[in-house]
Protein backbone atom coordinates (compact mmCIF):
# COMPACT_ATOMS: atom_id res chain seq x y z
CA UNK A 1 0.00 0.00 0.00
CA UNK A 2 1.16 3.53 -0.59
CA UNK A 3 0.52 6.94 0.79
CA UNK A 4 -1.42 7.80 -2.30
CA UNK A 5 -4.70 6.46 -1.11
CA UNK A 6 -6.44 6.39 2.23
CA UNK A 7 -6.18 3.22 4.27
CA UNK A 8 -9.52 1.49 4.38
CA UNK A 9 -10.26 0.33 7.90
CA UNK A 10 -13.17 -1.85 8.96
CA UNK A 11 -14.38 -2.39 12.50
CA UNK A 12 -15.46 -5.84 13.68
CA UNK A 13 -17.80 -5.34 16.60
CA UNK A 14 -20.21 -2.52 17.14
CA UNK A 15 -20.37 -2.10 20.89
CA UNK A 16 -19.01 0.77 22.96
CA UNK A 17 -15.45 0.26 21.72
CA UNK A 18 -16.44 -0.41 18.11
CA UNK A 19 -18.27 2.88 17.93
CA UNK A 20 -15.42 4.66 19.65
CA UNK A 21 -12.92 3.27 17.10
CA UNK A 22 -15.23 4.29 14.27
CA UNK A 23 -15.55 7.83 15.58
CA UNK A 24 -11.76 8.14 15.80
CA UNK A 25 -11.28 6.67 12.32
CA UNK A 26 -13.78 9.07 10.76
CA UNK A 27 -11.91 12.01 12.29
CA UNK A 28 -8.64 10.96 10.66
CA UNK A 29 -7.55 12.47 7.33
CA UNK A 30 -5.87 9.57 5.62
CA UNK A 31 -8.21 6.83 6.75
CA UNK A 32 -11.55 5.72 5.47
CA UNK A 33 -14.02 3.82 7.61
CA UNK A 34 -14.89 0.84 5.41
CA UNK A 35 -17.73 -0.51 7.52
CA UNK A 36 -18.74 -2.49 10.55
CA UNK A 37 -19.13 -6.16 10.93
CA UNK A 38 -21.59 -6.95 13.69
CA UNK A 39 -24.54 -9.16 14.32
CA UNK A 40 -27.50 -7.41 12.77
CA UNK A 41 -29.23 -5.46 15.49
CA UNK A 42 -31.03 -2.18 15.72
CA UNK A 43 -28.00 -0.65 17.42
CA UNK A 44 -25.59 -1.89 14.72
CA UNK A 45 -27.88 -0.67 11.93
CA UNK A 46 -28.20 2.71 13.62
CA UNK A 47 -24.43 2.94 14.15
CA UNK A 48 -23.63 2.14 10.52
CA UNK A 49 -26.20 4.69 9.39
CA UNK A 50 -24.91 7.40 11.71
CA UNK A 51 -21.32 6.85 10.56
CA UNK A 52 -22.53 6.70 6.95
CA UNK A 53 -20.84 3.36 6.48
CA UNK A 54 -21.67 -0.16 5.56
CA UNK A 55 -22.82 -2.93 7.89
CA UNK A 56 -21.37 -6.20 6.64
CA UNK A 57 -23.73 -9.10 7.06
CA UNK A 58 -20.92 -11.56 7.64
CA UNK A 59 -17.27 -11.39 8.58
CA UNK A 60 -16.48 -13.44 5.49
CA UNK A 61 -18.09 -10.77 3.34
CA UNK A 62 -15.92 -8.11 5.02
CA UNK A 63 -12.75 -10.14 4.57
CA UNK A 64 -13.61 -10.70 0.92
CA UNK A 65 -13.35 -6.97 0.26
CA UNK A 66 -9.89 -6.80 -1.26
CA UNK A 67 -9.42 -3.08 -0.65
CA UNK A 68 -9.95 -3.27 3.09
CA UNK A 69 -6.46 -2.94 4.55
CA UNK A 70 -7.09 -3.08 8.29
CA UNK A 71 -9.59 -4.72 10.61
CA UNK A 72 -10.12 -3.35 14.11
CA UNK A 73 -11.35 -6.10 16.39
CA UNK A 74 -13.56 -4.82 19.19
CA UNK A 75 -15.51 -8.03 19.67
CA UNK A 76 -15.78 -9.89 22.98
CA UNK A 77 -12.33 -11.12 24.01
CA UNK A 78 -12.93 -14.82 23.45
CA UNK A 79 -13.46 -14.09 19.75
CA UNK A 80 -10.22 -12.14 19.24
CA UNK A 81 -8.12 -15.09 18.14
CA UNK A 82 -10.53 -16.38 15.53
CA UNK A 83 -11.18 -12.96 14.01
CA UNK A 84 -7.55 -11.85 14.09
CA UNK A 85 -6.26 -15.05 12.53
CA UNK A 86 -8.87 -14.97 9.76
CA UNK A 87 -8.03 -11.34 8.98
CA UNK A 88 -4.31 -12.12 8.80
CA UNK A 89 -5.00 -15.06 6.50
CA UNK A 90 -6.68 -12.63 4.13
CA UNK A 91 -3.71 -10.27 4.29
CA UNK A 92 -5.37 -7.71 6.49
CA UNK A 93 -3.60 -5.90 9.31
CA UNK A 94 -5.20 -6.22 12.70
CA UNK A 95 -5.77 -3.64 15.39
CA UNK A 96 -7.13 -5.61 18.33
CA UNK A 97 -8.70 -4.12 21.42
CA UNK A 98 -7.18 -5.23 24.72
CA UNK A 99 -7.02 -7.78 26.23
CA UNK A 100 -5.38 -9.59 23.34
CA UNK A 101 -6.99 -12.95 24.25
CA UNK A 102 -7.75 -15.17 27.20
CA UNK A 103 -5.12 -17.88 26.73
CA UNK A 104 -1.49 -18.01 25.66
CA UNK A 105 -2.48 -20.57 23.07
CA UNK A 106 -4.66 -17.88 21.50
CA UNK A 107 -2.13 -15.06 21.74
CA UNK A 108 0.53 -17.29 20.18
CA UNK A 109 -1.78 -18.34 17.36
CA UNK A 110 -2.49 -14.67 16.65
CA UNK A 111 1.21 -13.82 16.59
CA UNK A 112 2.00 -16.83 14.37
CA UNK A 113 -0.65 -15.82 11.86
CA UNK A 114 0.60 -12.24 11.73
CA UNK A 115 4.13 -13.48 11.18
CA UNK A 116 3.17 -16.02 8.54
CA UNK A 117 1.05 -13.64 6.47
CA UNK A 118 3.23 -10.59 7.01
CA UNK A 119 0.44 -8.52 8.56
CA UNK A 120 0.69 -6.26 11.58
CA UNK A 121 -0.88 -7.22 14.90
CA UNK A 122 -1.39 -4.16 17.11
CA UNK A 123 -3.05 -4.44 20.49
CA UNK A 124 -4.77 -1.47 22.08
CA UNK A 125 -3.23 -1.02 25.49
CA UNK A 126 -4.46 2.53 25.68
CA UNK A 127 -2.62 3.55 28.86
CA UNK A 128 0.55 3.61 26.77
CA UNK A 129 -1.06 6.54 24.94
CA UNK A 130 -2.57 8.29 27.97
CA UNK A 131 -0.64 11.47 28.72
CA UNK A 132 -0.89 11.18 32.50
CA UNK A 133 0.56 7.67 32.41
CA UNK A 134 3.22 8.66 29.87
CA UNK A 135 4.16 11.59 32.09
CA UNK A 136 4.41 9.28 35.12
CA UNK A 137 6.47 6.73 33.24
CA UNK A 138 8.72 9.41 31.76
CA UNK A 139 9.67 10.72 35.21
CA UNK A 140 10.18 7.22 36.59
CA UNK A 141 12.29 6.06 33.63
CA UNK A 142 14.42 9.19 33.75
CA UNK A 143 15.26 8.41 37.37
CA UNK A 144 13.40 11.27 39.06
CA UNK A 145 12.22 9.04 41.92
CA UNK A 146 15.13 6.60 41.83
CA UNK A 147 14.73 2.85 41.77
CA UNK A 148 11.12 1.96 42.47
CA UNK A 149 10.57 0.00 45.69
CA UNK A 150 6.82 -0.23 46.05
CA UNK A 151 3.88 0.74 43.89
CA UNK A 152 0.11 0.71 43.85
CA UNK A 153 -2.47 0.97 41.11
CA UNK A 154 -6.20 0.94 41.41
CA UNK A 155 -8.84 0.82 38.72
CA UNK A 156 -12.44 0.84 39.86
CA UNK A 157 -15.59 1.19 37.84
CA UNK A 158 -19.23 0.38 37.62
CA UNK A 159 -20.15 -3.24 37.23
CA UNK A 160 -20.78 -4.29 33.63
CA UNK A 161 -24.49 -4.71 32.91
CA UNK A 162 -25.62 -8.11 34.15
CA UNK A 163 -26.67 -9.22 30.65
CA UNK A 164 -23.38 -8.19 29.00
CA UNK A 165 -20.65 -10.55 27.80
CA UNK A 166 -18.22 -8.88 30.24
CA UNK A 167 -20.05 -10.58 33.08
CA UNK A 168 -19.26 -14.02 31.65
CA UNK A 169 -15.75 -14.91 32.72
CA UNK A 170 -15.45 -17.46 29.90
CA UNK A 171 -15.98 -14.66 27.38
CA UNK A 172 -14.22 -11.70 28.98
CA UNK A 173 -11.83 -13.12 31.56
CA UNK A 174 -13.57 -11.01 34.20
CA UNK A 175 -12.14 -8.06 36.06
CA UNK A 176 -8.55 -9.32 35.80
CA UNK A 177 -8.66 -9.17 32.00
CA UNK A 178 -10.96 -6.20 31.61
CA UNK A 179 -9.50 -3.78 34.17
CA UNK A 180 -6.35 -5.08 35.81
CA UNK A 181 -4.64 -5.89 32.53
CA UNK A 182 -4.31 -2.15 31.89
CA UNK A 183 -2.20 -1.68 34.99
CA UNK A 184 -0.37 -4.97 34.49
CA UNK A 185 0.81 -3.75 31.08
CA UNK A 186 1.58 -0.25 32.35
CA UNK A 187 3.66 -1.55 35.25
CA UNK A 188 5.53 -4.02 33.06
CA UNK A 189 6.16 -1.23 30.53
CA UNK A 190 7.47 0.99 33.30
CA UNK A 191 9.24 -1.45 35.64
CA UNK A 192 10.25 -4.38 33.46
CA UNK A 193 9.57 -8.08 33.74
CA UNK A 194 7.43 -9.67 36.44
CA UNK A 195 8.88 -12.53 38.44
CA UNK A 196 5.91 -13.67 40.50
CA UNK A 197 2.26 -12.93 41.22
CA UNK A 198 0.09 -13.48 44.28
CA UNK A 199 -3.56 -12.57 43.90
CA UNK A 200 -7.03 -12.86 45.34
CA UNK A 201 -10.38 -12.53 43.65
CA UNK A 202 -13.51 -11.68 45.61
CA UNK A 203 -16.95 -11.83 44.09
CA UNK A 204 -20.41 -11.02 45.37
CA UNK A 205 -23.59 -10.01 43.56
CA UNK A 206 -22.68 -6.90 41.56
CA UNK A 207 -19.04 -6.98 42.69
CA UNK A 208 -15.84 -8.45 41.32
CA UNK A 209 -12.70 -7.31 43.13
CA UNK A 210 -9.23 -8.53 42.27
CA UNK A 211 -6.09 -7.74 44.22
CA UNK A 212 -2.67 -8.81 42.98
CA UNK A 213 0.86 -8.26 44.20
CA UNK A 214 3.47 -8.41 41.46
CA UNK A 215 7.13 -8.93 42.23
CA UNK A 216 9.34 -7.57 39.49
CA UNK A 217 12.77 -8.80 38.44
CA UNK A 218 14.01 -5.38 39.56
CA UNK A 219 12.82 -6.23 43.10
CA UNK A 220 9.93 -3.75 42.99
CA UNK A 221 6.71 -4.85 44.71
CA UNK A 222 3.48 -3.56 43.19
CA UNK A 223 -0.07 -4.08 44.45
CA UNK A 224 -2.85 -3.82 41.88
CA UNK A 225 -6.57 -3.49 42.54
CA UNK A 226 -9.26 -3.97 39.94
CA UNK A 227 -12.82 -3.46 41.04
CA UNK A 228 -16.11 -3.85 39.23
CA UNK A 229 -19.06 -2.57 41.20
CA UNK A 230 -17.22 0.36 42.78
CA UNK A 231 -19.88 2.62 44.30
CA UNK A 232 -18.30 5.86 43.15
CA UNK A 233 -17.07 7.66 40.06
CA UNK A 234 -14.60 5.80 37.83
CA UNK A 235 -11.23 5.70 39.53
CA UNK A 236 -7.77 5.14 38.08
CA UNK A 237 -4.87 5.83 40.42
CA UNK A 238 -1.19 4.99 40.57
CA UNK A 239 1.51 5.57 43.11
CA UNK A 240 5.14 4.62 42.60
CA UNK A 241 7.57 5.17 45.47
CA UNK A 242 11.27 5.08 44.78
CA UNK A 243 14.58 5.63 46.53
CA UNK A 244 14.49 9.37 45.90
CA UNK A 245 10.84 10.27 45.57
CA UNK A 246 7.21 9.37 45.14
CA UNK A 247 5.02 9.96 42.14
CA UNK A 248 1.24 9.74 42.11
CA UNK A 249 -1.39 10.01 39.46
CA UNK A 250 -5.15 10.05 39.86
CA UNK A 251 -7.92 10.63 37.36
CA UNK A 252 -9.74 12.57 40.08
CA UNK A 253 -7.05 15.24 39.93
CA UNK A 254 -6.32 17.08 36.74
CA UNK A 255 -9.86 18.14 36.02
CA UNK A 256 -9.44 21.54 34.38
CA UNK A 257 -13.15 21.96 33.86
CA UNK A 258 -16.01 21.17 36.19
CA UNK A 259 -19.56 22.02 35.20
CA UNK A 260 -22.08 21.84 38.01
CA UNK A 261 -25.74 21.85 37.24
CA UNK A 262 -28.42 22.58 39.78
CA UNK A 263 -30.01 19.23 39.15
CA UNK A 264 -27.70 16.29 38.86
CA UNK A 265 -27.57 14.80 35.39
CA UNK A 266 -25.34 12.03 36.59
CA UNK A 267 -26.48 8.58 35.55
CA UNK A 268 -26.08 5.95 38.18
CA UNK A 269 -25.97 2.20 38.14
CA UNK A 270 -24.43 -0.18 35.68
CA UNK A 271 -22.56 0.61 32.52
CA UNK A 272 -19.22 0.48 30.78
CA UNK A 273 -17.27 3.60 31.59
CA UNK A 274 -15.00 5.25 29.05
CA UNK A 275 -13.13 8.14 30.67
CA UNK A 276 -13.31 11.43 28.85
CA UNK A 277 -10.37 13.75 28.38
CA UNK A 278 -10.00 17.45 27.73
CA UNK A 279 -7.22 17.01 25.22
CA UNK A 280 -6.74 17.88 21.58
CA UNK A 281 -6.15 14.21 21.03
CA UNK A 282 -7.63 11.69 23.40
CA UNK A 283 -5.59 8.54 24.13
CA UNK A 284 -7.68 6.35 21.83
CA UNK A 285 -7.07 8.78 19.00
CA UNK A 286 -3.34 8.84 19.72
CA UNK A 287 -3.31 5.06 19.86
CA UNK A 288 -5.18 4.47 16.62
CA UNK A 289 -3.17 7.15 14.80
CA UNK A 290 0.02 5.47 15.99
CA UNK A 291 -1.18 2.05 14.85
CA UNK A 292 -2.16 3.43 11.45
CA UNK A 293 1.29 5.03 11.18
CA UNK A 294 2.87 1.66 12.07
CA UNK A 295 0.92 0.01 9.28
CA UNK A 296 1.74 2.77 6.81
CA UNK A 297 5.43 3.10 7.51
CA UNK A 298 6.41 -0.17 9.12
CA UNK A 299 7.70 1.46 12.33
CA UNK A 300 7.69 -0.57 15.54
CA UNK A 301 4.65 -0.01 17.74
CA UNK A 302 4.86 1.41 21.27
CA UNK A 303 3.22 -1.84 22.38
CA UNK A 304 4.14 -5.09 20.64
CA UNK A 305 1.98 -8.16 20.30
CA UNK A 306 4.53 -9.87 22.53
CA UNK A 307 3.94 -7.19 25.21
CA UNK A 308 0.20 -7.75 24.99
CA UNK A 309 0.74 -11.50 25.26
CA UNK A 310 2.91 -11.04 28.35
CA UNK A 311 0.15 -9.01 29.98
CA UNK A 312 -2.23 -11.92 29.30
CA UNK A 313 0.32 -14.31 30.80
CA UNK A 314 0.49 -12.24 34.00
CA UNK A 315 -3.31 -11.94 34.23
CA UNK A 316 -3.56 -15.72 33.80
CA UNK A 317 -1.01 -16.22 36.57
CA UNK A 318 -3.01 -13.88 38.82
CA UNK A 319 -6.12 -15.96 38.14
CA UNK A 320 -4.26 -19.17 38.96
CA UNK A 321 -2.93 -17.64 42.16
CA UNK A 322 -6.40 -16.52 43.19
CA UNK A 323 -7.77 -20.03 42.56
CA UNK A 324 -4.97 -21.94 44.30
CA UNK A 325 -4.01 -19.43 47.00
CA UNK A 326 -0.38 -19.88 45.97
CA UNK A 327 2.07 -17.42 44.45
CA UNK A 328 2.80 -18.08 40.78
CA UNK A 329 6.28 -17.79 39.32
CA UNK A 330 6.62 -16.49 35.80
Amino acid sequence: MTNERSLRVAVAGCGTMGKLYASVLTRMDDVELAGFYARRSESAIDAAASFGTRLFASYEELLAEADIDVVCITLPTYLHRQYAVQAAERGKHVICEKPMALTLEDTEAMMRASERYGTRLLVGHVLRFSPEYRNLRGHVRSGKIGNVGVGHARRASLHPPSDSWFKNEELSGGVLFDLMIHDIDFMRWTLGEVRSVYASLTTAPGIEYANATLRFASGAIVNLEAHWGYPGPFLAEVELAGQSGVMRCSNLNGQPLIVRQTESQRTAGEGVHIPSFLLRKDPYEAEIEHFIACIRTGIEPVVSAEDASRAVEIALAAGRSARTGLPQKL
Binding site: G149, Y198, S200, T202, N211, T213, A241, G245
Partner: peptide, 28 residues
Amino acid sequence: EDTGLVHVTFRGGQKTVLDTSWSRGKSF
Protein backbone atom coordinates in the same frame (compact mmCIF):
# COMPACT_ATOMS: atom_id res chain seq x y z
CA GLU B 1 13.70 -4.70 55.25
CA ASP B 2 12.14 -1.36 54.38
CA THR B 3 9.39 -2.63 52.08
CA GLY B 4 6.51 -4.96 52.84
CA LEU B 5 3.27 -5.99 51.19
CA VAL B 6 1.35 -8.32 53.51
CA HIS B 7 -1.70 -10.28 52.35
CA VAL B 8 -3.89 -11.75 55.08
CA THR B 9 -6.93 -13.94 54.59
CA PHE B 10 -9.12 -13.93 57.68
CA ARG B 11 -10.92 -17.02 58.97
CA GLY B 12 -14.17 -15.74 57.51
CA GLY B 13 -12.54 -15.57 54.09
CA GLN B 14 -12.11 -11.77 53.95
CA LYS B 15 -9.10 -10.83 51.83
CA THR B 16 -6.92 -8.07 53.20
CA VAL B 17 -3.67 -6.54 52.06
CA LEU B 18 -1.43 -3.99 53.70
CA ASP B 19 1.51 -1.90 52.56
CA THR B 20 3.91 -1.53 55.49
CA SER B 21 6.73 0.19 53.62
CA TRP B 22 8.95 3.00 54.75
CA SER B 23 8.38 4.57 51.37
CA ARG B 24 8.15 8.23 52.36
CA GLY B 25 11.34 10.18 51.85
CA LYS B 26 12.34 13.72 52.64
CA SER B 27 10.42 15.23 49.73
CA PHE B 28 7.05 13.71 50.63
